[in-house]
């Protein structure tokens, strides 16, 4: 039997303040709410696949999505982690190219979809939406340039320290014991692809960091114990 879904008001979205519609008036938001398609993607389910036809824009309400690219050797690497407030599929809106990467849910993730024609019309009518998308594209570009530079200029230890700091910025929370938790479950393999190294290497360096008291692990989560030392180790230029 086909089940009905409740049309969710965009004004109540927990990610509204971080998203592209943060400055849009209630009436326009109501239109977005009527037009969007909302789905929950379970861990491992894909929003879109590399090489496929783009349909529009995905806005992440809650959860985390890994964006991966498969190389010619068939190996998959994570190029980005998208979280609440982020958008996906926006590059294809402007380039008319097929999806250049695959987006897969890392956990139960609630995502709203808006088709291309609609979002382009919204961008014309609401310049703040365009500005927000430009800001996100600019931020993505900056992060990609930093990552490229790190891959060329830093060793694995430095890249791992940098990754942990980046994850702390994007997913860091203070837990009940006042500890800095990276609230994101990533396998060692996934982390290895993010910094361009082998699984065995990252396992070795994570153990090293634990022994040095820089990080600790509880269950599947990593905690940062000594942020200052990690910053020194990451050899940040800013």
């Amino acid at each position: 039997m086909v089940q009905s879904t409740k049309s969710q008001n965009c004004s109540n979205c927990p990610s509204l303040a971080k998203g592209i519609f943060c400055s849009v008036e209630e009436s326009a938001l109501a239109d977005v709410a009527r037009h969007k398609v909302t789905n929950t993607y379970k861990k491992g389910q894909t929003l879109f696949v590399q090489g496929n036809h783009p349909f529009g824009l995905f806005c992440i309400s809650t959860g985390n999505i890994k964006v991966t690219k498969v190389g010619v050797n068939g190996k998959e690497s994570i190029v980005r982690i998208a979280s609440a407030g982020d958008v996906l599929g926006h590059r294809s809106l402007f380039t008319n190219q097929f999806y250049m990467a695959t987006a897969t849910a890392l956990e139960d993730t609630k995502v709203c979809f808006l088709d291309k024609k609609f979002i382009l019309k919204v961008m014309q009518k609401e310049p703040t939406v365009s500005m927000q998308i430009i800001e996100k594209l600019s931020t993505d570009m900056g992060k990609a340039e930093s990552k490229l530079s790190s891959l060329h200029q830093k060793n694995v230890r430095e890249r791992l320290a940098e990754l942990l700091l980046i994850l702390k910025e994007s997913h860091g929370t203070i837990d009940t014991e006042d500890k800095l938790k990276i609230n994101l479950k990533l396998t060692r393999e996934e982390m290895a692809t993010m910094i361009g190294t082998a699984n065995e290497t990252i396992i070795r360096f994570i153990s090293e960091f634990k022994e040095a008291g820089l990080i600790e692990q509880k269950g599947k989560y990593l905690y940062i114990k000594d942020e200052e030392k990690l910053i020194d180790l990451a050899n940040l230029s800013y």
Partner: peptide, 28 residues
């Protein structure tokens, strides 16, 4: 039916290799 009625489908859909489709989004 599901897209127009904003309803969920009890089934999953999978397309096999070399399948050609047209798409209709809400704007279309």
């Amino acid at each position: 039916v599901e897209l127009i009625g904003n309803k969920t489908c009890q089934y999953a859909a999978k397309v096999k290799k070399d399948t050609t489709l047209y798409f209709l989004d809400k704007s279309s």
